[in-house]
């Protein structure tokens, strides 16, 4: 699982039915690259979250029919930008 930051919500009205009605978030990883994740948790802009990728993402989306390869699993309570082994 990767630690990423939620940049924004993605609105996508015309979509494949495999996405269902799941919320989509734009997330940025440590290397700075953007990707789109399905969000069953309800994260807000600026939240630090951890995401799961691959086929496990479809299980994390609570419904295996959801066609996703990246899903937000949870919002991290304390996380500092420095990525160092900060206090927790």
């Amino acid at each position: 699982m990767l630690i990423q930051r939620v940049e924004d919500t993605l609105v996508c009205t015309t979509r494949h039915e495999g996405l269902g009605h799941m919320h989509l978030r734009i997330v940025r990883d440590a290397k700075g690259s953007l990707s789109v994740a399905v969000d069953p948790v309800g994260a807000h802009k600026g939240n630090w979250v951890f995401t799961v990728s691959g086929s496990a993402a479809r299980y994390a989306a609570q419904n295996f029919e959801i066609l996703t390869d990246l899903t937000i699993c949870g919002i991290i309570d304390h996380w500092d930008e420095a990525e160092g082994p900060g206090k927790n």
């Binding site: 951890f50 299980y59 994390a60 699993c73 949870g74 919002i75 991290i76 304390h78 927790n88």
Partner: peptide
């Protein structure tokens, strides 16, 4: 160190997560 995430999906149950 351990990763604490109180608000997370139910499927993850109560398994310990580590950074």
């Amino acid at each position: 160190r351990p990763l604490v995430s109180t608000n997370r999906i139910a499927e993850m149950e109560h398994k310990l997560l580590q950074v």
